[in-house]
Amino acid sequence: MADRDRRGMLIKNTGSVDEQVAMASRVIKLGPGEEEFITPEEVRDPKLREALQVRAIAIVRPATKEEDEALANRLATS
């Protein structure tokens, strides 16, 4: 079976307090209402999935191919 073409996601802090998700690849800090793109690999991170389960973080929508590429370039240069 062929691998799926995975895409990143736009996530959002839906709560009223700051949230921090310490994934294997990086730490994301989001204030209330803030949004951040995550890579396709980060979508599967257990710490992110835990934050999604307790509804501290919500997935807004899948990233477009251009957004995925821009994030990959940004992370590669930091």
Score class of each variant (00 low, 15 high):
residue 3 D to C: 06
residue 3 D to A: 12
residue 4 R to H: 08
residue 6 R to S: 09
residue 6 R to C: 05
residue 8 G to E: 08
residue 8 G to T: 06
residue 9 M to R: 10
residue 11 I to M: 13
residue 11 I to Q: 13
residue 11 I to Y: 15
residue 14 T to W: 10
residue 15 G to L: 04
residue 16 S to T: 14
residue 17 V to S: 15
residue 19 E to D: 04
residue 20 Q to Y: 11
residue 20 Q to H: 07
residue 21 V to A: 00
residue 23 M to L: 05
residue 26 R to M: 00
residue 26 R to Q: 02
residue 26 R to L: 02
residue 28 I to Q: 03
residue 28 I to R: 02
residue 33 G to Y: 13
residue 36 E to W: 12
residue 36 E to S: 07
residue 36 E to Y: 13
residue 40 P to H: 03
residue 42 E to S: 00
residue 44 R to E: 14
residue 45 D to G: 02
residue 46 P to I: 02
residue 46 P to H: 07
residue 47 K to N: 10
residue 48 L to P: 03
residue 50 E to C: 05
residue 50 E to Y: 04
residue 52 L to M: 08
residue 52 L to G: 03
residue 53 Q to T: 10
residue 54 V to T: 15
residue 55 R to E: 15
residue 55 R to L: 10
residue 55 R to P: 05
residue 55 R to N: 13
residue 55 R to G: 12
residue 56 A to D: 13
residue 56 A to R: 14
residue 57 I to Q: 04
residue 58 A to Q: 12
residue 58 A to M: 10
residue 59 I to P: 12
residue 59 I to W: 00
residue 59 I to G: 05
residue 61 R to G: 06
residue 61 R to M: 07
residue 63 A to D: 07
residue 64 T to E: 11
residue 64 T to P: 08
residue 66 E to K: 14
residue 67 E to K: 08
residue 67 E to S: 06
residue 68 D to N: 08
residue 69 E to C: 03
residue 69 E to G: 06
residue 69 E to F: 00
residue 70 A to F: 05
residue 70 A to R: 15
residue 71 L to W: 09
residue 71 L to N: 04
residue 72 A to W: 13
residue 72 A to D: 14
residue 73 N to D: 13
residue 74 R to N: 09
residue 74 R to M: 08
residue 74 R to P: 01
residue 75 L to T: 00
residue 77 T to V: 07
